[in-house]
Design a protein around this nucleic acid. Structure first.
Length: 369
RNA sequence: GUGAUCGUAGCUCAGUUCGGUUAGAGCACCUGGUUGUGGUCCAGGAUGUCGGGGGUUCAAAUCCCCUCGGUCACC
């Protein structure tokens, strides 16, 4: 079903809205943690509840290989399988076309399983039916995400193939009435940093018509300045009553910049991956907890963030757990970084309501820019 | 006590046969990086009484002598 955005407040292009899906509502701007294989690494669904997470991602490529989409369907869908009573979104496997570099032709992509080496052919149709089985609230269409920088002909080919796959993926979804009732399907705009290709890709995606729209293929190697104009070019063309989702963005500076250009939703592995390797988000910027200067630092990770789930422990102690590779360390740091991101987004929403978004943006860029 | 063997970076070791650039590697350590996650990976950095002393030589971790320490075997 169409995902409807009810805009509650705006400040410039930045918007605070309430999105309604079949399975529930959520406010935007919204940060969505990534739980590729059915869990955010080191955390459980009850942790996610404690963090007040609203939407968690899963990944089609990984889940279709293990445990298989049939099993998840029979278990009542991804959320039920994981005992998660919030919302879910599945990525189509399009990102793995970028990261795993399978053979791609007009039909689809041929992957070799990372688990047993077996060959799997992922088509836009299969991506849609598999995601229907996974049963998330939002499914993403299969797209082609190219690495940047890229020649224009490469980007053009990706835009063409993405458009071809969009119509086939949408058609497959529309043939599946139960999925349509429970799920929303989002289209994805490609085009790299090329403005004319971004406009073309947006128009072609809109022509197919989806329940919501995503911007893909950015934050994959280009600088932040190169990524912003293409974002504006896309959001200007998108309908205001449907959510806009920037895929794969999660640094605070990038986030305020694209919110300032009308984006609503984000997912990113950055806060969780950084946490696993000892980089901590704080109100004064990121710190690398492995640094020797924290050996005897008695302060909490972010003294200004009193509600952090890690506020009981000193930097010294957590660094010790980290360098001795205690499993508790990545868990606590992941909890902290996600809580920090959610708090950041809460403050971001507040700034939009209060008409203080530009001040918030400027302060964020001073620290994270 | 006798014999063998080993001693090179914090750790494990390569290099010693046949002397020859500024003595290396992996791990650990110290910095960065990581953006729709292949439980990582990448990039950079610091580190030496070559057990000690003496000798030979233009030149010694490398050859010779003495010595200290470890390990093993046999007394």
């Amino acid at each position: 079903m169409k995902a409807v955005s009810e805009v509650i407040a705006t400040d410039g292009e930045a918007r605070l809205s309430e999105v309604t899906l079949a399975g529930g509502k959520f406010q935007t701007p919204c940060f969505m943690p990534v739980g590729t294989r059915g869990a955010v690494k080191h955390l459980s669904s009850s942790d996610m509840k404690d963090l007040n997470a609203e939407i968690i991602l899963g990944n089609t490529y990984h889940l279709m290989l293990r445990p298989g989409s049939d099993l998840i369907r029979e278990s009542g869908g991804l959320a039920k399988f994981a005992s998660w009573d919030g919302l879910t979104l599945t990525d189509s496997g399009g990102y793995q076309i970028f990261s795993l570099q399978p053979k791609v032709d007009d039909l689809g992509a041929t992957f070799r399983s990372i688990y047993d080496g077996s060959s799997h052919h992922l088509t836009p149709e299969l991506a849609s039916t598999t995601q229907a089985d996974l049963g998330a609230d939002i499914q993403m269409v299969l797209d082609v995400c190219s690495a940047l920088p890229a020649e224009k002909n490469i980007l053009k080919e990706a835009v063409d193939r993405t458009a071809l796959w969009a119509s086939r993926g949408r058609e497959a979804f529309l043939l599946h009435p139960e999925a349509q009732e429970r799920q929303s399907q989002f289209g994805i705009v490609q085009g790299g940093t090329d403005i004319s290709l971004r406009i073309e890709s947006t128009q072609r995606t809109l022509q197919v018509g989806f329940d919501g729209y995503a911007i893909g293929g950015l934050s994959v190697g280009e600088g932040r300045s190169e990524m912003l104009d293409p974002v504006s070019a896309v959001t200007e063309l998108l309908p205001k009553d449907q959510p806009r989702y920037f895929m794969g963005l999660g640094d605070p500076a990038g986030l305020v910049e694209v919110v300032g250009r009308g984006v609503d939703m984000f997912d990113c592995v950055l806060p969780t991956r950084l946490a696993r390797h000892g980089t901590v988000l704080t109100s004064e910027g990121r710190i690398n907890l492995r640094n020797a200067k924290f050996i005897a630092d008695e302060r909490p990770l972010d003294p200004a963030f009193e509600n952090s789930p890690a506020s009981n422990w000193s930097r010294s102690y957590l660094r010790h757990l980290l360098v001795t590779e205690e499993p508790t360390a990545p868990r606590i740091l992941t909890l902290h970084n996600l809580a920090w991101m959610f708090e950041f987004v809460t403050q971001l929403r507040k700034s939009i309501i209060e008409g203080e978004f530009q001040r918030f943006r400027k302060e964020t860029l001073e620290i994270w820019g």
